[in-house]
Design a protein around this nucleic acid. Structure first.
Length: 881
DNA sequence: GCAAGGTC
C-alpha cells in the first residue's frame, strides 16, 4: 500500500498556488471540527494551516500551505549569461536550467521541511496549464527530499464548500502534458527573447544616436513574442493614419423646428465626393423647399447592462471612464482584493455561476450613501427590479467575475482610484437618447435650415488602451494577467508613448524596429508567431505532439529566422537611419561586439577581453572597451579555428582566464607541433608564444583582397536629410538621383505615407498647423488626380488642417522653409468658406475663385442666388433665410 | 542588460 503509516493517521501536505487559496481550502475543509491552526512557515506570506480531516474514510493530518505563482525560473547556464559571452545565435541551443530564484528560497525551504514528514502531496494549483506546470515545480522540490511521496492533484473550479470537499475526495493524477506545454513555451520565449534582444541591442544601440534622456547603459532594445506584436498593433494603426489622404465630401443637411422641438434629417445618400453633383441636388432642394414626410417608423432601442467584469473588461473600462492605465488599474485592484473589498481581480470569467449568492453581494452594499438605497430597492421583492446579470460566456473555471465583496464607505489613506472600482448604478454610460417631434405620413413642412456642407474624411483614431487590449485579446497575445505588463513594457522601452487622450503612438524607435523587420519581409511584429506557439502548446497539452518535438522544430525555425534576420540586418540599419543620426561610437556590428569572454582586461580593468576574428579572418583577443581600451593579443596567423573553453588556467592572474582550443593549419606550423592545442593567452603558454613567433600574427596572406567584401556592415547610408544624402543612393531602390523620402518605388499603398524622415531634429520641411500648432510634415498624395503632389496635413486627430505644398508656395510667395514658416489655414484651406468645420471663414470675403476639393481653382462656379463667384448659395448674404 | 508566466 502506498502512503505508509498503515492504519495510523496519514500526513498530507497540500500546496496551493497562492496564500489566499490555501487559506480558503483550509477553512472550508476544517469547518466541521477540524480544529484549524495556523503557523508560520519560512516565508512570511505563505502560512501553514493544520487540521484533521478524513480522505475517503481515512483519518488524515492535513497541512495546507502555498507557493506564490511559479516557484522556478528558466535561465541559461552561467557560461551564457553575460551578453558578450557568446554569439546570440548560440542561445537557440545553449544549455538552460530551471532553478529556484533567491526570493523563492524561503518557500522552497518550507516545502522541503514539511514534505519530509508527509506521506501524501496534494496539489491545489490553479486548474490551467501554468498551474499544472507549477504543480510539477512543487513536485520536484518535494520529491527531492522525500522520494516516497504519493502525489495527487485536486481539481476544483471555485472556492466553495461543495467543490472543495468533492475535490479532496476525488483526487486525480497531475497532467504532465499540460506542464510540458508550459515548459516548451518558457524555453521558446527565453531563447527567442534573449537572442533577438541581444542581437538588436548590440547592433543598433551604439550605432545610432538614440537620445531618450536616459542613462545610455539602460537602453535595451528588447524583443519578445508578446511585446513586439503589441507594438505591431500600435505601429500598424499609426501607419494607417499616416496613409490616410483626406478627401473632401459634400452633404446636404436639413432641420425643422416646430413647437415640439428640433428634428434633424440626414441625407439618405450620406455624402457625395463629387461637388458638382452635390451642388446640383442641393440647388434642386432649395428651389423646391417643401418637404413631404413619406414614411414614419418608430424603433425601440435596447441597451443591455454590461456583463459581469473580467480582468480585461475591468482594465478597458477603467481606462475609458477613469483614464487609468491598465497597469495602475491592476495595482489598485490588487490592493482592493488584498483588503477584501473585491473578488480576485485576475479572471477570465464574465458570468456568475448559478451557485453565486448574488443577493448576499447586493446586501453588502445597502448601507452605502450613494448606491445603498438602490441596493435596498433591488432587494425588495415587490420592486420587480431584480434581474440576474447577463453571462458573457467565458469561464476560467477558477474564479468568479470581479465583484465587490463587502461594504466600504471609503477607507482612510486610499486614493480616489480605489473607490472608483465599483460598478454602482453605473453613472458612466448614458442612454444617449433624444426625442424628436412626431410626424405623420404625408405631412409637409418647410425646412428651417437647408445647407450644403463640406466635410473631410478622417483616418481612424490612434489606438486607445481599450483598443489595444481588445487587439491583444483577439489575437491571443499575453494572458489576462500579463497584458497590462506588455503595454507598460512598450512605454518603458521607449517603443511607444501614450498621449493625453490615452492613445498610443509609436516612437521613432518603435516604428524603426517594426519597419526594419517588415522590410526584411518578416512578420516578427505580427501576432502569427504567438498564434503558432499557442497551437503547438495546445498540441503538447493534448498529447498529440511531444515537448521535444515542438521545441526542436520551432527553435530550428526561429534560429533560421534569426540567422536570416542577421544577414538582412542592413534593413534594420536603414530603417533606423530614417529616424536617427549615425553615431561615431563603436558597435553597429554585433559580431564585433560579441565574442566569447576569455578574461578580464588587465589594462583598463573595466571590460572583458573576448575572442574575435577580424575581417581578414585572423583571430585576436581584444578588450570589449575598444576603442577606449586598445588592449589586444594577436594570435598566430596559422590558426584555422579557435574556441573558448570552460577550462580555467590555474596559473594566470587576474582570472578567470579561460583556455582556448586552438586548431592550426598543419602545413603552416612546424611538424613537431600538434595542430590541436589547448592553450592560454595569459602568458603561461610557451607553445603559443613560440607559434606566434614562428608564424607571426595578422594577415596570413597579405594583400590578396581576402575578406575585402566580407564586411556585412558597410552601410554607408547617411542619415542627413539634406545636402549629401540627396546624392547618395536611395535606401529603397538603390538608385541615385533622389532621396529615399522621394523614392518612386515607395509611393504606393500604405507604405508610401509612412512617417519617413520626420525626425524633428533633422530639419525636415514642416509647417506649423495654424489651428493647433502641431508641426505638419510634407507628404505625397497618391490619388488619381494628384499622384505625386505634395501636401501638408495636420496629424492631430481633432484638426482638419490641410494644404497643398504648391498652393502654399503660391500663396506665400516663397518656399517653405525649414521649421517655422507660418501658414494661415484660411488662405489655403481647400474648402473655402463653406462647411461646418468653421475652417476659413475668410472665403466669403475673398475675391478669388473657389478652390475645389483638389485644391485647384474652380472657374465658372458661382452663387446661383446672386451670381457672385466668391461664395455659394448656402452662405449668400442676399438670400432670405 | 534579455522573454513571459505565475504572484506578494
Amino acid at each position: 500500500m502506498s502512503g505508509g503509516g498503515r492504519g495510523g493517521v496519514m500526513k498530507v501536505l497540500h500546496v496551493a498556488e497562492k496564500p489566499s487559496v490555501a487559506k480558503s481550502v483550509a477553512t472550508i475543509l476544517s469547518r466541521n471540527n477540524g480544529g484549524l491552526r495556523t503557523r508560520e512557515g519560512r516565508s512570511r506570506y505563505n502560512k501553514i494551516f493544520e487540521f484533521s480531516y478524513s480522505i475517503n474514510g481515512r483519518p488524515c493530518h492535513m497541512l495546507v500551505t502555498s507557493v506564490t505563482g511559479h516557484l522556478m525560473e528558466l535561465e541559461f547556464q552561467d557560461r551564457y549569461r553575460k551578453w558578450h559571452s557568446c554569439d546570440p545565435a548560440d542561445l537557440f541551443h545553449a544549455p538552460v536550467h530551471k532553478f529556484v530564484p533567491e526570493d523563492k528560497l524561503d518557500i522552497k525551504r518550507t516545502l522541503e521541511e514539511e514534505a519530509r514528514w508527509c506521506q501524501w502531496l496534494v496539489l491545489w494549483l490553479d486548474c490551467d496549464r501554468e498551474g499544472e506546470n507549477i504543480a510539477f515545480e512543487v513536485i520536484e522540490v518535494c520529491t527531492a527530499v522525500n522520494p516516497h511521496l504519493t502525489i495527487k492533484r485536486a481539481h476544483f473550479s471555485a472556492l466553495i464548500d461543495r467543490e472543495i470537499h468533492e475535490a479532496v475526495q476525488r483526487l486525480v493524477e497531475p497532467n504532465k502534458c499540460f506542464a510540458d506545454a508550459v515548459d516548451a513555451r518558457q524555453e521558446i520565449d527565453l531563447r527567442i527573447g534573449a537572442s533577438f534582444t541581444r542581437f538588436q541591442t548590440m547592433l543598433l544601440k551604439d550605432a545610432f544616436v538614440i537620445d531618450f534622456t536616459t542613462d545610455d547603459r539602460n537602453l535595451v532594445l528588447s524583443y519578445g513574442p508578446c511585446q513586439f506584436p503589441t507594438l505591431g498593433f500600435v505601429v500598424e494603426r499609426y501607419w494607417e493614419i499616416q496613409a490616410h489622404e483626406p478627401e473632401e465630401f459634400w452633404t446636404i443637411n436639413c432641420s425643422h423646428k416646430s413647437d415640439e422641438g428640433i428634428a434633424t434629417f440626414n441625407w439618405m445618400r450620406g455624402h457625395l465626393f463629387d461637388y458638382t453633383c452635390a451642388v446640383i441636388i442641393y440647388e434642386m432642394c432649395v428651389q423646391e423647399p417643401i418637404a413631404t414626410v413619406t414614411k414614419v417608423r418608430q424603433q425601440e432601442k435596447l441597451k443591455y447592462p454590461p456583463y459581469p467584469l473580467n480582468t480585461i473588461e475591468l482594465e478597458k473600462r477603467a481606462s475609458r471612464f477613469f483614464r487609468m492605465s491598465s497597469e495602475h488599474t491592476m495595482k489598485v485592484a490588487e490592493d482592493l482584493y488584498q483588503a477584501g473589498f473585491i473578488s480576485y481581480p485576475r479572471t477570465e470569467t464574465d458570468g456568475f455561476s448559478q451557485r453565486t449568492d448574488l443577493h448576499a453581494i447586493v446586501q453588502e452594499q445597502q448601507r452605502h450613501p450613494v448606491w445603498g438605497p438602490y441596493a435596498q430597492q433591488l432587494l425588495e421583492p415587490g420592486s420587480g427590479l431584480w434581474r440576474n446579470p447577463g453571462n458573457g460566456g467565458h469561464d476560467d473555471k477558477a474564479h468568479p467575475p470581479i465583484h465587490p465583496t463587502k461594504f466600504s464607505s471609503g477607507e482612510s489613506g486610499w486614493s480616489q482610484d480605489h473607490h472608483r472600482n465599483y460598478l454602482d448604478v453605473y453613472r458612466f454610460e448614458s442612454w444617449g437618447s433624444s426625442t424628436i417631434p412626431t410626424y405623420v405620413s404625408g405631412q409637409q413642412f418647410v425646412p428651417t435650415s437647408l445647407t450644403l456642407d463640406s466635410g473631410v474624411t478622417r483616418p481612424p483614431p490612434l489606438l486607445s488602451e481599450a483598443d489595444l487590449l481588445s487587439c491583444m485579446d483577439k489575437e491571443g497575445i499575453g494572458t489576462d494577467a500579463t497584458m497590462h505588463d506588455h503595454i507598460k513594457k512598450l512605454l518603458d522601452r521607449f517603443y511607444a508613448t501614450k498621449d493625453s487622450n490615452m492613445r498610443f503612438s509609436p516612437t521613432n524607435l518603435g516604428e524603426a524596429l517594426v519597419m526594419g523587420y517588415d522590410d526584411m519581409g518578416y512578420k516578427l511584429w505580427k501576432p502569427y508567431l504567438r498564434a503558432v506557439m499557442e497551437r503547438d502548446m495546445k498540441a503538447v497539452s493534448e498529447g498529440t505532439k511531444s515537448k521535444a518535438e515542438v521545441l526542436t522544430t520551432s527553435l530550428q525555425q526561429m534560429k533560421a529566422c534569426f540567422v536570416d534576420a542577421r544577414l538582412n540586418k542592413v534593413k534594420l540599419f536603414e530603417a533606423m537611419a530614417v529616424f536617427f543620426e549615425r553615431s561615431n561610437r563603436s558597435g553597429g556590428d554585433e559580431q564585433h561586439a560579441a565574442g566569447e569572454v576569455v578574461r578580464p582586461c588587465v589594462l583598463c580593468q573595466e571590460s572583458d577581453m573576448v575572442l574575435r576574428r577580424n575581417r581578414d579572418g585572423n583571430f585576436m583577443v581584444g578588450c570589449m572597451g575598444y576603442p577606449q581600451c586598445r588592449n589586444a593579443v594577436w594570435l598566430p596567423g596559422s590558426l584555422s579555428e579557435a574556441v573558448v573553453t570552460a577550462n580555467i588556467c590555474n596559473t594566470c592572474t587576474p582570472g578567470p582566464v579561460y583556455m582556448i582550443q586552438f586548431k592550426f593549419r598543419p602545413l603552416e606550423i612546424p611538424p613537431n607541433y600538434n595542430a590541436n592545442h589547448l592553450g592560454c593567452i595569459g602568458g603561461c603558454d610557451e607553445i603559443l608564444r613560440q607559434l606566434i613567433e614562428i608564424c607571426g600574427t595578422g594577415s596570413r596572406i597579405p594583400a590578396r583582397g581576402r575578406g575585402s567584401s566580407a564586411s556585412a556592415s558597410n552601410v554607408q547610408q547617411s542619415n542627413s536629410r539634406h545636402g549629401e544624402a540627396r546624392h547618395s543612393a536611395c535606401i529603397y531602390c538603390h538608385q541615385t538621383g533622389h532621396s529615399s523620402s522621394d523614392c518612386p518605388s515607395q509611393v504606393s499603398g500604405s507604405r508610401s505615407a509612412r512617417h519617413r524622415g520626420m525626425n524633428p531634429q533633422s530639419g525636415e520641411p514642416s509647417v506649423p498647423c495654424s489651428t493647433c500648432g502641431t508641426p505638419c510634415i510634407l507628404r505625397t498624395a497618391n490619388t488619381a488626380n494628384n499622384r505625386g503632389r505634395k501636401f501638408y496635413s495636420c496629424q492631430s486627430q481633432e484638426c482638419n488642417f490641410f494644404v497643398w505644398e504648391d498652393n502654399l508656395n503660391n500663396v506665400t510667395g516663397r518656399n517653405v522653409q525649414r521649421g517655422r514658416t507660418s501658414v494661415s489655414a484660411s488662405n489655403t484651406s481647400r474648402s473655402g468658406g463653406r462647411g461646418r468645420g468653421g475652417r476659413g471663414g475668410s472665403r466669403a470675403t475673398a475675391t478669388a475663385t473657389f478652390v475645389s476639393a483638389t485644391g485647384d481653382p474652380v472657374t465658372g462656379r458661382r452663387c446661383f442666388v446672386c451670381g457672385d463667384p466668391s461664395h455659394f448659395a448656402n452662405v449668400c448674404p442676399n438670400r432670405g433665410s
